[in-house]
Every structure is written in C-alpha cells, then in structure tokens.
C-alpha cells in the first residue's frame, strides 16, 4: 500500500487530557481517533473514565500540538541549569531560624 492510502480514511487522532478531580490539573492520559471534537470527548469518556477517573475532559487534535525537541533539551534548558540560587536550599541560614 502506498503511504497515503494506509490511513486515507482514518479518523483524526486526538490527545486526551483528564482532570481526575476538582482542584487538580488536567493530565495527559493517551490518545484516540474520532471524527470530530464531540465524538472525541464521548469516546474519551468511554475509553478513559469507565471508573469515574475524571470530572472534566479536554481533547486536542494531535496535529495541533507543538512539542520541544528532546535532542535540543540540553541547550533548551541551559538557562535554568546554572541558577541553583532559585532553590531555597541554596541559602545557608542558622538552624535556630524557624518558620521560614
């Protein structure tokens, strides 16, 4: 089969994010195929929340997600690398000091 025929009629792929309970962030749980957003939400309910795992569902068509390149992660995160003073443990304070 030529490459484009292999998934000619395939429904688009959607990434699914579920908020497991009020107060928490939506978290990526996986993907699924659906013809449109409404169907993606309904399928996500059936696939990812059969045991009340969620109170809210986000669906995003996979092609709309932009991701950082893992091979460039060393340069991408370089600015954060040498700034240990951003962490509270960088500061040397006496043990008697409380509530800080």
């Amino acid at each position: 089969m030529p490459e484009q025929d292999k998934h000619k009629n395939e429904w688009p792929l959607w990434e699914i994010f579920i908020r497991s309970k009020a107060g928490l962030d939506h978290k990526h749980v996986g993907s699924l195929h659906a013809a449109d957003a409404q169907m993606a939400i309904e399928n996500a309910r059936d696939v990812y929340t059969r045991r009340m795992e969620g109170v809210s569902i986000w669906v995003i068509e996979s092609k709309n997600i932009h991701a950082s390149d893992p091979d460039e992660s060393s340069s991408l995160y370089d600015p954060a690398n040498d700034k240990i003073y951003r962490h509270p443990t960088f500061y040397n304070l006496p043990d008697e000091l409380k509530h800080m």
Binding site: K6, H7, E10
Partner: peptide, 9 residues
C-alpha cells in the same frame, strides 16, 4: 501509534 505506525496499518 506513538512509534510511527498508523492504526489502519
């Protein structure tokens, strides 16, 4: 599918 094979395939 995250490895680059399609569902239809």
């Amino acid at each position: 599918e995250t490895l680059g094979i399609s569902r239809d395939e």
